[in-house]
Amino acid sequence: MADLLNPVDWLLALLQVLLFALAAPLLAAWVKRIKSRLQNRRGPSLLQPYRDLRKLFRKEARVANSASPLFRAAPYVVFSATLIAASTVPLLAVHLPTAILADVIVLVGFLALARFFLALAGMDVGSAFGGMGASREMLISALAEPAMLMAIFTLTMSAHSTNLSSVIQHVLDSGLLLRPSFLFALLALLLVAVAETGRIPIDNPATHLELTMVHEAMILEYSGRHLALMEWAAQIKLLLYGVLISNIFLPWGMAQQLEPLPLLIGLAAIAGKLMLLGVVLAVSETLVAKMRLFRVPAYLNLAFLLGLLGMLSHVILEVGV
Protein backbone atom coordinates (compact mmCIF):
# COMPACT_ATOMS: atom_id res chain seq x y z
CA MET A 1 0.00 0.00 0.00
CA ALA A 2 1.37 3.40 -0.92
CA ASP A 3 2.12 5.99 1.65
CA LEU A 4 -1.13 7.85 2.23
CA LEU A 5 0.42 11.21 2.93
CA ASN A 6 2.93 11.30 0.12
CA PRO A 7 2.00 14.32 -2.06
CA VAL A 8 3.73 12.91 -5.14
CA ASP A 9 1.52 9.84 -5.02
CA TRP A 10 -1.58 11.98 -4.75
CA LEU A 11 -0.40 14.04 -7.69
CA LEU A 12 -0.01 10.82 -9.67
CA ALA A 13 -3.52 9.74 -8.69
CA LEU A 14 -4.91 13.08 -9.87
CA LEU A 15 -2.94 12.82 -13.11
CA GLN A 16 -4.40 9.37 -13.64
CA VAL A 17 -7.95 10.72 -13.35
CA LEU A 18 -7.05 13.50 -15.77
CA LEU A 19 -5.62 10.93 -18.16
CA PHE A 20 -8.86 8.97 -17.87
CA ALA A 21 -10.90 11.99 -18.91
CA LEU A 22 -8.55 12.98 -21.71
CA ALA A 23 -8.07 9.51 -23.18
CA ALA A 24 -11.77 8.62 -23.18
CA PRO A 25 -12.69 10.34 -26.49
CA LEU A 26 -9.67 8.73 -28.12
CA LEU A 27 -10.95 5.20 -27.42
CA ALA A 28 -14.38 6.07 -28.82
CA ALA A 29 -12.72 7.48 -31.93
CA TRP A 30 -10.50 4.42 -32.25
CA VAL A 31 -13.50 2.06 -32.18
CA LYS A 32 -15.32 4.23 -34.71
CA ARG A 33 -12.30 4.27 -37.01
CA ILE A 34 -11.78 0.49 -36.95
CA LYS A 35 -15.50 0.06 -37.62
CA SER A 36 -15.30 2.40 -40.60
CA ARG A 37 -12.32 0.49 -41.95
CA LEU A 38 -14.24 -2.76 -41.66
CA GLN A 39 -17.06 -1.19 -43.66
CA ASN A 40 -14.67 0.03 -46.38
CA ARG A 41 -14.92 3.67 -45.31
CA ARG A 42 -12.08 5.92 -44.30
CA GLY A 43 -13.70 7.09 -41.10
CA PRO A 44 -13.24 10.34 -39.17
CA SER A 45 -9.89 11.38 -37.73
CA LEU A 46 -8.93 10.19 -34.27
CA LEU A 47 -9.20 13.77 -33.02
CA GLN A 48 -12.80 14.23 -34.19
CA PRO A 49 -14.45 13.59 -30.77
CA TYR A 50 -12.20 16.27 -29.25
CA ARG A 51 -13.29 18.74 -31.92
CA ASP A 52 -16.91 17.82 -31.34
CA LEU A 53 -16.57 18.35 -27.61
CA ARG A 54 -14.83 21.73 -28.12
CA LYS A 55 -17.55 22.84 -30.49
CA LEU A 56 -20.29 21.81 -28.07
CA PHE A 57 -18.60 23.54 -25.11
CA ARG A 58 -18.50 26.81 -27.07
CA LYS A 59 -22.13 26.66 -28.10
CA GLU A 60 -24.95 28.17 -26.11
CA ALA A 61 -26.90 25.69 -23.98
CA ARG A 62 -30.64 25.83 -24.65
CA VAL A 63 -33.07 24.49 -22.07
CA ALA A 64 -36.74 23.59 -22.60
CA ASN A 65 -39.43 25.76 -20.94
CA SER A 66 -40.77 22.85 -18.95
CA ALA A 67 -37.33 21.89 -17.55
CA SER A 68 -36.77 21.94 -13.78
CA PRO A 69 -33.44 22.83 -12.11
CA LEU A 70 -32.74 19.11 -12.04
CA PHE A 71 -32.44 19.15 -15.80
CA ARG A 72 -29.61 21.71 -15.59
CA ALA A 73 -27.87 19.94 -12.70
CA ALA A 74 -28.03 16.42 -14.16
CA PRO A 75 -25.13 16.71 -16.66
CA TYR A 76 -22.78 17.86 -13.90
CA VAL A 77 -23.89 15.08 -11.56
CA VAL A 78 -23.61 12.44 -14.27
CA PHE A 79 -20.19 13.64 -15.38
CA SER A 80 -18.70 13.92 -11.91
CA ALA A 81 -20.14 10.61 -10.70
CA THR A 82 -18.68 8.87 -13.76
CA LEU A 83 -15.33 10.58 -13.26
CA ILE A 84 -15.21 9.62 -9.58
CA ALA A 85 -16.08 6.06 -10.57
CA ALA A 86 -13.21 6.19 -13.07
CA SER A 87 -10.85 7.45 -10.39
CA THR A 88 -11.38 4.24 -8.42
CA VAL A 89 -10.18 2.04 -11.27
CA PRO A 90 -6.40 1.46 -11.34
CA LEU A 91 -5.22 2.59 -14.75
CA LEU A 92 -1.41 2.57 -14.83
CA ALA A 93 -0.29 1.51 -11.38
CA VAL A 94 -1.65 -1.00 -8.90
CA HIS A 95 -1.09 0.93 -5.70
CA LEU A 96 -2.12 4.54 -5.75
CA PRO A 97 -3.46 6.39 -2.70
CA THR A 98 -6.92 6.09 -4.26
CA ALA A 99 -6.57 2.31 -3.88
CA ILE A 100 -8.47 2.43 -0.58
CA LEU A 101 -11.41 3.85 -2.51
CA ALA A 102 -11.11 1.27 -5.22
CA ASP A 103 -13.88 -0.97 -4.03
CA VAL A 104 -15.91 -2.72 -6.69
CA ILE A 105 -19.20 -2.14 -4.92
CA VAL A 106 -18.43 1.59 -4.63
CA LEU A 107 -17.68 1.61 -8.35
CA VAL A 108 -21.02 -0.04 -9.19
CA GLY A 109 -22.72 2.42 -6.83
CA PHE A 110 -21.25 5.49 -8.53
CA LEU A 111 -22.23 4.18 -11.94
CA ALA A 112 -25.75 3.54 -10.64
CA LEU A 113 -25.89 7.12 -9.31
CA ALA A 114 -24.90 8.49 -12.72
CA ARG A 115 -27.48 6.32 -14.42
CA PHE A 116 -30.19 7.35 -11.97
CA PHE A 117 -29.67 11.04 -12.73
CA LEU A 118 -29.45 10.34 -16.44
CA ALA A 119 -32.85 8.63 -16.34
CA LEU A 120 -34.34 11.43 -14.22
CA ALA A 121 -33.06 14.02 -16.68
CA GLY A 122 -34.58 12.01 -19.53
CA MET A 123 -38.00 12.12 -17.89
CA ASP A 124 -37.72 15.72 -16.64
CA VAL A 125 -38.75 17.63 -19.76
CA GLY A 126 -41.75 15.40 -20.25
CA SER A 127 -41.12 14.52 -23.87
CA ALA A 128 -42.28 11.08 -24.97
CA PHE A 129 -38.85 10.00 -26.17
CA GLY A 130 -37.10 10.91 -22.93
CA GLY A 131 -39.49 8.84 -20.84
CA MET A 132 -39.24 5.94 -23.22
CA GLY A 133 -35.45 6.04 -23.19
CA ALA A 134 -35.37 6.26 -19.40
CA SER A 135 -37.67 3.30 -18.96
CA ARG A 136 -35.59 1.21 -21.37
CA GLU A 137 -32.34 2.20 -19.68
CA MET A 138 -33.76 1.16 -16.33
CA LEU A 139 -34.92 -2.18 -17.77
CA ILE A 140 -31.44 -2.87 -19.11
CA SER A 141 -29.57 -1.74 -16.02
CA ALA A 142 -31.87 -3.62 -13.62
CA LEU A 143 -30.95 -6.81 -15.46
CA ALA A 144 -27.29 -5.96 -16.08
CA GLU A 145 -26.41 -5.05 -12.52
CA PRO A 146 -26.99 -8.51 -10.96
CA ALA A 147 -24.99 -10.08 -13.79
CA MET A 148 -22.13 -7.66 -13.20
CA LEU A 149 -22.16 -8.19 -9.45
CA MET A 150 -22.24 -11.96 -9.94
CA ALA A 151 -19.16 -11.77 -12.18
CA ILE A 152 -17.42 -9.47 -9.72
CA PHE A 153 -18.23 -11.68 -6.74
CA THR A 154 -16.56 -14.53 -8.60
CA LEU A 155 -13.38 -12.47 -8.85
CA THR A 156 -13.55 -11.28 -5.28
CA MET A 157 -14.06 -14.81 -4.02
CA SER A 158 -10.74 -15.88 -5.50
CA ALA A 159 -8.95 -12.77 -4.26
CA HIS A 160 -10.76 -12.65 -0.88
CA SER A 161 -11.28 -8.90 -1.24
CA THR A 162 -13.65 -6.51 -2.98
CA ASN A 163 -10.85 -4.03 -3.43
CA LEU A 164 -9.83 -3.70 -7.07
CA SER A 165 -6.15 -3.16 -6.27
CA SER A 166 -6.05 -6.32 -4.15
CA VAL A 167 -7.81 -8.31 -6.87
CA ILE A 168 -5.30 -7.13 -9.46
CA GLN A 169 -2.38 -7.79 -7.10
CA HIS A 170 -3.75 -11.28 -6.46
CA VAL A 171 -3.94 -12.03 -10.19
CA LEU A 172 -0.41 -10.67 -10.66
CA ASP A 173 0.94 -12.74 -7.77
CA SER A 174 -0.63 -16.03 -8.82
CA GLY A 175 0.95 -15.87 -12.28
CA LEU A 176 -0.49 -17.64 -15.28
CA LEU A 177 -3.34 -19.82 -14.04
CA LEU A 178 -6.10 -21.18 -16.24
CA ARG A 179 -9.09 -20.48 -14.08
CA PRO A 180 -12.47 -21.54 -15.50
CA SER A 181 -14.16 -19.08 -13.15
CA PHE A 182 -12.16 -16.15 -14.56
CA LEU A 183 -13.02 -17.22 -18.07
CA PHE A 184 -16.75 -17.16 -17.28
CA ALA A 185 -16.45 -13.90 -15.36
CA LEU A 186 -14.61 -12.34 -18.31
CA LEU A 187 -17.34 -13.39 -20.74
CA ALA A 188 -20.06 -12.16 -18.38
CA LEU A 189 -18.31 -8.82 -17.88
CA LEU A 190 -17.85 -8.38 -21.64
CA LEU A 191 -21.59 -8.92 -22.20
CA VAL A 192 -22.48 -6.55 -19.36
CA ALA A 193 -20.01 -3.92 -20.59
CA VAL A 194 -21.58 -3.97 -24.05
CA ALA A 195 -25.04 -3.56 -22.52
CA GLU A 196 -24.05 -0.86 -20.05
CA THR A 197 -22.13 1.29 -22.49
CA GLY A 198 -24.93 1.10 -25.04
CA ARG A 199 -23.02 -0.59 -27.82
CA ILE A 200 -24.49 -2.48 -30.71
CA PRO A 201 -26.53 -5.52 -29.92
CA ILE A 202 -28.30 -3.50 -27.21
CA ASP A 203 -28.26 0.13 -28.35
CA ASN A 204 -26.74 1.88 -31.32
CA PRO A 205 -24.74 5.00 -30.35
CA ALA A 206 -24.55 6.18 -33.96
CA THR A 207 -28.22 6.72 -34.78
CA HIS A 208 -31.24 8.73 -33.72
CA LEU A 209 -33.73 6.16 -34.91
CA GLU A 210 -36.84 6.87 -32.84
CA LEU A 211 -38.00 3.37 -32.12
CA THR A 212 -34.73 1.79 -31.07
CA MET A 213 -32.64 4.42 -29.31
CA VAL A 214 -32.01 4.19 -25.59
CA HIS A 215 -29.15 6.46 -24.55
CA GLU A 216 -29.76 9.00 -27.33
CA ALA A 217 -33.43 9.25 -26.36
CA MET A 218 -32.56 10.42 -22.86
CA ILE A 219 -30.14 13.14 -23.94
CA LEU A 220 -32.28 14.30 -26.87
CA GLU A 221 -33.24 17.60 -25.18
CA TYR A 222 -29.69 18.58 -24.27
CA SER A 223 -27.53 21.03 -26.17
CA GLY A 224 -24.29 22.95 -25.80
CA ARG A 225 -22.08 22.28 -22.79
CA HIS A 226 -24.73 20.05 -21.18
CA LEU A 227 -24.69 17.74 -24.17
CA ALA A 228 -20.88 17.84 -24.22
CA LEU A 229 -20.73 16.69 -20.59
CA MET A 230 -23.23 13.89 -21.21
CA GLU A 231 -21.32 12.62 -24.24
CA TRP A 232 -18.00 12.90 -22.47
CA ALA A 233 -19.41 10.92 -19.52
CA ALA A 234 -20.55 8.18 -21.91
CA GLN A 235 -17.05 8.03 -23.42
CA ILE A 236 -15.46 7.85 -19.97
CA LYS A 237 -17.80 5.00 -19.11
CA LEU A 238 -16.68 3.08 -22.19
CA LEU A 239 -13.03 3.61 -21.25
CA LEU A 240 -13.78 2.64 -17.65
CA TYR A 241 -15.23 -0.73 -18.66
CA GLY A 242 -12.36 -1.28 -21.08
CA VAL A 243 -9.75 -0.57 -18.39
CA LEU A 244 -11.63 -2.63 -15.82
CA ILE A 245 -11.76 -5.70 -18.06
CA SER A 246 -8.21 -5.47 -19.38
CA ASN A 247 -6.62 -4.67 -16.02
CA ILE A 248 -8.42 -7.35 -14.01
CA PHE A 249 -8.02 -10.20 -16.44
CA LEU A 250 -4.71 -9.23 -18.06
CA PRO A 251 -2.95 -7.09 -15.46
CA TRP A 252 0.53 -7.80 -16.80
CA GLY A 253 2.53 -4.68 -17.47
CA MET A 254 0.92 -2.56 -14.76
CA ALA A 255 3.34 -0.51 -12.65
CA GLN A 256 3.91 -1.94 -9.20
CA GLN A 257 6.20 0.87 -8.07
CA LEU A 258 5.45 4.52 -8.58
CA GLU A 259 8.57 5.31 -10.60
CA PRO A 260 8.84 6.84 -14.07
CA LEU A 261 9.95 3.75 -15.98
CA PRO A 262 7.33 1.27 -14.66
CA LEU A 263 4.68 3.96 -15.14
CA LEU A 264 5.71 4.42 -18.77
CA ILE A 265 5.61 0.67 -19.32
CA GLY A 266 2.18 0.64 -17.67
CA LEU A 267 1.00 3.37 -20.03
CA ALA A 268 2.22 1.48 -23.08
CA ALA A 269 0.69 -1.77 -21.78
CA ILE A 270 -2.74 -0.32 -21.12
CA ALA A 271 -2.73 1.51 -24.48
CA GLY A 272 -1.94 -1.75 -26.25
CA LYS A 273 -4.61 -3.69 -24.37
CA LEU A 274 -7.24 -1.03 -25.04
CA MET A 275 -6.37 -0.89 -28.74
CA LEU A 276 -6.84 -4.64 -28.92
CA LEU A 277 -10.10 -4.49 -26.99
CA GLY A 278 -11.30 -1.69 -29.29
CA VAL A 279 -10.63 -3.87 -32.33
CA VAL A 280 -12.57 -6.75 -30.71
CA LEU A 281 -15.48 -4.41 -29.98
CA ALA A 282 -15.48 -2.98 -33.50
CA VAL A 283 -15.36 -6.43 -35.10
CA SER A 284 -18.19 -7.73 -32.91
CA GLU A 285 -20.27 -4.62 -33.68
CA THR A 286 -19.74 -5.20 -37.38
CA LEU A 287 -20.68 -8.87 -37.21
CA VAL A 288 -23.71 -8.59 -34.92
CA ALA A 289 -26.99 -6.88 -35.73
CA LYS A 290 -28.90 -4.84 -33.20
CA MET A 291 -31.30 -6.87 -31.11
CA ARG A 292 -34.97 -6.17 -30.56
CA LEU A 293 -35.51 -4.65 -27.14
CA PHE A 294 -37.53 -7.64 -26.01
CA ARG A 295 -34.61 -9.94 -26.67
CA VAL A 296 -32.38 -7.95 -24.31
CA PRO A 297 -33.53 -9.83 -21.15
CA ALA A 298 -32.46 -13.11 -22.77
CA TYR A 299 -29.04 -11.61 -23.57
CA LEU A 300 -28.57 -10.37 -20.02
CA ASN A 301 -29.85 -13.68 -18.64
CA LEU A 302 -26.96 -15.28 -20.51
CA ALA A 303 -24.58 -12.84 -18.83
CA PHE A 304 -26.08 -13.68 -15.45
CA LEU A 305 -25.84 -17.40 -16.16
CA LEU A 306 -22.18 -17.00 -17.10
CA GLY A 307 -21.52 -15.14 -13.86
CA LEU A 308 -23.33 -17.82 -11.90
CA LEU A 309 -21.42 -20.60 -13.66
CA GLY A 310 -18.21 -18.72 -12.91
CA MET A 311 -19.05 -18.69 -9.24
CA LEU A 312 -20.11 -22.35 -9.24
CA SER A 313 -17.00 -23.46 -11.08
CA HIS A 314 -14.91 -21.47 -8.63
CA VAL A 315 -16.54 -23.26 -5.70
CA ILE A 316 -16.56 -26.71 -7.29
CA LEU A 317 -13.35 -26.80 -9.30
CA GLU A 318 -10.97 -24.36 -7.66
CA VAL A 319 -11.64 -24.46 -3.95
CA GLY A 320 -11.99 -28.22 -3.77
CA VAL A 321 -11.76 -29.94 -0.42
Binding site: L177, R179, L183, F184, L306, L309, S313, L317, E318, G320
Partner: peptide
Protein backbone atom coordinates in the same frame (compact mmCIF):
# COMPACT_ATOMS: atom_id res chain seq x y z
CA UNK B 1 -6.24 -28.36 -3.16
CA UNK B 2 -4.46 -25.47 -4.76
CA UNK B 3 -4.84 -24.74 -8.42
CA UNK B 4 -1.31 -23.35 -8.59
CA UNK B 5 0.17 -26.73 -7.64
CA UNK B 6 -1.23 -28.34 -10.77
CA UNK B 7 0.40 -28.18 -14.18
CA UNK B 8 -1.02 -26.21 -17.08
CA UNK B 9 -2.45 -29.35 -18.69
CA UNK B 10 -4.31 -30.28 -15.51
CA UNK B 11 -5.66 -26.75 -15.29
CA UNK B 12 -6.80 -26.94 -18.89
CA UNK B 13 -8.81 -30.07 -17.99
CA UNK B 14 -10.80 -27.92 -15.58
CA UNK B 15 -11.37 -25.25 -18.20
CA UNK B 16 -12.54 -27.82 -20.73
CA UNK B 17 -14.92 -29.46 -18.26
CA UNK B 18 -16.35 -26.08 -17.27
CA UNK B 19 -16.82 -25.17 -20.94
CA UNK B 20 -18.58 -28.49 -21.57
CA UNK B 21 -20.94 -27.67 -18.72
CA UNK B 22 -21.58 -24.25 -20.24
CA UNK B 23 -22.36 -25.86 -23.60
Amino acid sequence: MNLAQLGLLEQSIFVLVALALFL
